[in-house]
Design a protein around this nucleic acid. Structure first.
Lengths: 335, 335
DNA sequence: TAACAGAGGTTAAACGTTTTACTTCATTCA
DNA sequence: TGAATGAAGTAAAACGTTTAACCTCTGTTA
């Protein structure tokens, strides 16, 4: 049986209150009693019951982290920094991967409202952002929520931190345009979510600045896997033989795209230049080394947690942060 | 303010007990009252307080997951399947990355003893397994613990699930030996932990079967990163120019090794054959495609969770499971 | 008709803390 | 001396559930 404060108190011959004060340092206790109590605590390896603590204090020192997909190198990156930050701040982390399942996401959010967590860092599932609305109970509740990476307007009054997708799309396209490309294909996985939309908007804006008209056919959707993009790139290039450059919106898809191009015997970058998205470990030693938009998931995660802490302490808090990205130039774009 | 059962009960004019029975379906309630209660519940978006539930029921339906490093593709893989399994079984997951920090690991374990979780899936930090012992309070406590991937004899009476490291080391070495290699280097990151030890033991056993004597100098330790193994392979090959094949014990290090070999202008597989460890997305399209020992993190994670469930329901439960690995042959081993 | 069973509800204790408001006693100060 | 102050400790309520035990009807059975 677990030993409780009551048992400790009885054994020492003191009140539960006193034990509590010793454990928490909330009141001065004579060193005589203090030592007696501490001895018994150590003897029994007493550790306080968190359910009871939480119930009484109405706080759990736990944050919920809800991600839409896993493992994914980017998500993985920010989970890591969130977990580090949580640790530093004395918080625990309740981890939930919704696997893009809208119903499970809603169910989970509801569950977390049960005083299970003090706040939530949420990256909505794709369908959610695209077309669903959150139930009112979530919205008018006072549970602090911070959005990360993906936006949903239901939470327009919550803090939001994201990689700067518009800038990323813009930078990649500008770089290719500067080097003479005019027919730039774009391979993406998930439509409807803000990252995809904003990246495409950045790409469009760049085209516009160069007076190149936007061609809907140059956008190719594929499954968010190596295999998916291998198929996608073939389909895209068969339909549009004039394409000379590609911008691929994820790391796994970048790998698949290279694989597809190799199978088609397309030389990178001579026949098709390539810019990928998200740095992955093998990018520098691929054949050819891959130029890509490098993200900062670490900064993203850390910022998310700090925003959450602010939101918890100050319910009116509301801020949007854009984390900049950087183009890392290697051989695959031919520049 | 949060609405509680008490408020619901008052509003309907019924006892708290009745509300509880409606919420949990623990007793037959007349449909008249049932409907009234449900209506008010929905009106207020009532959701039960989990701290109170947990306190009363002495269970949290939450499992702790303590990993030694993150992100790491293998760890990431099993986290994913653990989280999926937890979801299926109605459990929550408290995620902790110790970052190989022994003190934090101990502190965390202690914390989780506070009725925060119903059980723990643990992969000990390296130093822990190498030289530290767990405090008694953890060992004689009744909190169910399952070890995953890394072993620690303190938990010899807990279930344990691991990839079959001995077999992996053996298979890789046998494969290279069969193809005529006699001077096989091995690059690893963390000594002292069971995976490394067992892989090396498997490698030794294979050498023995082929009557090749084991050479201590062929083992090279490096930092568990791309950069670390790039340095390691250079150092190893400079000291031992006769080496014709390499076995590398992690995916990141495989990437770094290839990078190092390229910088040294060593042709793979003609001058140095290579077998890596752990499948990574770009392995098939590297130059050359990489032969490796493919692990099954999914099976590992799922098994871990199932073992934990068994352990929770039956404290005497104790089982060790070895998940087999497979050699995936591609170009880099020259076979 | 008496005894019983079952349906539908309620009361109150219990889970293990924290914390407010009290008590008691010794000391200090004027 | 008497009042005020402070130090050390305690009693009891509160947090929001679950659940064993009990109660009160109504209808059934012998």
């Amino acid at each position: 049986m677990k030993v409780t404060m009551k048992k400790i108190a009885e054994e020492v011959g003191v009140s539960v209150t006193t034990v509590s004060h010793v454990v928490n340092g909330t009141k001065k206790i004579s060193s005589e009693k203090y030592n007696q109590i501490m001895e018994i605590i150590r003897k029994h390896n007493y550790v306080p019951n968190y359910s009871a603590k939480n119930l009484r204090s109405q706080s759990t020192k736990t944050a919920g982290l809800i991600v839409p997909s896993f493992p994914d190198s980017y998500v993985t990156g920010y989970i890591n920094s969130i977990s580090r930050r949580a640790k530093e701040m004395g918080y625990n982390l309740l981890f939930i991967n919704t696997d893009e399942d809208v119903d499970y996401e809603q169910e989970t959010l509801k569950l977390l409202h049960s005083n299970m967590v003090d706040g939530i860092i949420l990256s909505p599932s794709a369908k959610m952002e695209e077309s669903e609305s959150y139930s009112e109970e979530l919205l008018d509740s006072s549970l602090p929520i911070v959005l990360i990476s993906r936006y949903h307007e239901a939470f327009q009054h919550s803090p939001f931190v994201t990689q700067d997708d518009f800038q990323a799309g813009y930078d990649a396209a500008i770089h290719l345009l500067q080097h003479g490309h005019r027919d730039i294909g774009l391979i993406y996985a998930v439509s409807g979510i803000s990252p995809t939309k904003n990246r495409i908007n950045g790409y469009k804006k760049a085209l516009e600045e160069y007076g190149v008209s936007f061609n809907e056919n140059y956008l190719e959707k594929g499954h968010a896997t190596v295999e998916g993009s291998r198929k996608a790139v073939k389909s895209l290039l068969e339909k549009n033989k004039e394409i000379t450059a590609l911008f691929v919106l994820s790391d796994l898809m970048t790998i698949g795209t290279i694989s597809g191009l190799k199978e088609m015997n397309k030389k990178i970058p001579d026949e098709v230049a390539l810019i990928g998205f998200g740095d992955f470990p093998s990018a520098p030693i691929m054949d050819p080394p891959v130029t890509n938009i490098s993200l900062s998931p670490d900064t993203l995660g850390q910022t998310a947690f700090d925003l959450l802490l602010n939101k918890i302490n100050n319910p009116g808090y509301d801020k949007t942060v854009h984390i900049p990205n950087f183009l890392i130039t290697r051989k695959s774009c031919g520049c």
